[in-house]
Simulated scan of single mutants.
Amino acid sequence: MDEATDDVRQAIAGELALMDPRIRASREFAGRLLDPEFVEVGGSGRRSTYEVMLGELPGHPGSSPDGPRYEPSDLSGVRLAPGLVHLTFETRLGERRTRHSSIWRKGDGDAGWRMYHHQATRVPAGME
């Protein structure tokens, strides 16, 4: 496996981990996967930063082990530069379908791969 493929694989692993209710419910675990400079533009258009997201993530949909879980599809990525990966994918959470784009960057030392930016767009019912 070449370095670019391995970078994409590691970013995908981080993305899938952030869909796990146990990770989402834990400020400590989620904090290891979000970059300190993290910014998200959610499906509602709302902008969230690292601290806001860590505070709110446990209450977001998909964060309860007893509730609905994210079902990802069409997950793919490309290495933009060393230490920088762009992922795109779709999710279903119950009846809600969303398209996602995220940028992952490799942190210094033991920080590993962290999500730097995330954009979500809800897909209206009946739209391809």
Rank of each mutant, 00 (worst) to 15 (best):
Y50N: 08
F38V: 06
D74Q: 12
V52N: 04
R79G: 04
P72D: 06
L75E: 11
G31Y: 03
M19D: 13
P82T: 05
M115S: 11
L75W: 04
G45A: 09
S44I: 08
A30V: 00
S76T: 05
P68C: 15
G45V: 04
L80K: 07
S63T: 03
L54R: 03
G62S: 04
Y116H: 11
H117R: 08
S73I: 03
E56Y: 02
A4I: 02
Q119M: 01
A11H: 03
W104R: 11
A4N: 07
E40T: 00
R27N: 12
R47W: 07
R92W: 05
T121D: 10
M53T: 08
G14V: 07
P68K: 15
V78Q: 12
D66G: 13
G55S: 15
I23Y: 01
S26Q: 07
G107Q: 09
L84F: 07
D6T: 15
R99S: 15
L75I: 12
H60R: 12
L75K: 01
D7F: 01
E28W: 02
A111F: 10
V39L: 11
W113C: 08
Y50V: 13
Y50T: 08
L75H: 07
E56G: 12
W104M: 09
I103Q: 07
G107E: 14
R27W: 08
K106A: 15
P21W: 00
G14L: 06
E40S: 01
P82K: 04
E3Q: 08
R97H: 15
G43S: 15
P58R: 02
A81C: 05
R46V: 10
E28Q: 14
V78C: 09
R97C: 12
E51G: 15
G45C: 12
P68E: 15
A25W: 02
S63Y: 02
G42D: 08
S63H: 00
E28T: 13
V41D: 01
V78W: 04
